[in-house]
Design a protein around this nucleic acid. Structure first.
Lengths: 151, 151
DNA sequence: AATGAAAGGCTGGAACT
DNA sequence: AGTTCCAGCCTTTCATT
């Protein structure tokens, strides 16, 4: 299950985390092997599933999504989690959902255009899911850290 | 402040979100303009700051970081936030930190190898920050949704 | 796993519409 | 904003070590 990464793989990953569009030749010159070798290793790491996908970090505020919030969701005792997740997936403002220990059944992160839009999403979308009994909202005023794990 | 994205820009962004390493020529053939135009637009979007960086989504479990947790951090009234953030930045297990409304002063997301490691991070690192009075931890047992916002 | 070589393909700048 | 052009560079494959 735990794919083994050697120190070369780790160096490659660090360069890709910093800039997923970096050229293979540039990684090669940083790492000190040929680009053919880098190419093969990236394929192997990708196939191993350690890299789920190459993507981007967006500035949500600049896209007009100025409000970020975490919502603790309380659920009925005998809820069908899978079905609830399917309903949450249909809510486009939801970007993360976690099953958590502690008082909440689910913990959700979402982005909305503003506070009015947040109210609408809570009242018209999340609270409409029938197993949801109550929610608790924390608005993120600022996100001073957002990065990948180091390893 | 809010950079204007037209429908072509949005299509480009969607392709890059799905695969940040997609070739410019491939975006061009999906979108229906020349690759020179795509190239110019990507530069413009990047310069506009909407794309903060190209990066990757990792499978933290496969990297040996099996435990994901959210920590609500209670702080002294007169805390110097900036300094606390600097201390959190030095904790490599921390991947996100938010200033939030509600009962917590800060809300932190972190990855640890296992529950013992989580205990160590909480007791030996986070609770060692002098303004931290108390913490409340939610362990994420599973993360069934993790995606970018749609726009 | 890494290398070298080779072919084809892509990128990114320039000039122009 | 978009297009064409194109030289130079990069990617990717494969036989070999």
């Amino acid at each position: 299950m735990n794919f083994h990464l050697d120190s070369t793989d780790k160096k490659i990953l660090k360069h890709l985390i910093k800039d997923a569009r970096i050229k293979v030749v540039d990684i090669a010159s940083f790492v000190g092997v040929t680009s053919a070798a880098i190419h093969q290793r990236i394929g192997k790491i990708k196939r191993g599933g350690i890299i789920k996908e190459f993507t981007l970090r967006l500035d949500e505020k600049k896209l007009g999504y100025a409000t970020c919030a975490f919502v603790g969701v309380f659920l009925d005792k005998n809820s069908n989690y899978e079905q609830i997740i399917n309903q949450l997936k249909r809510i486009e403002e939801v970007v993360e959902a976690h099953y958590t220990t502690g008082e909440y059944g689910l913990f959700v992160k979402l982005y909305t255009k503003d506070n009015d839009h947040l109210m609408t999403v809570l009242n018209k979308k999340i609270k409409q899911i029938k197993e949801v009994t109550r929610t608790e909202t924390f608005i993120s005023l600022e996100e001073p850290i957002n990065r990948s794990i180091s390893f």
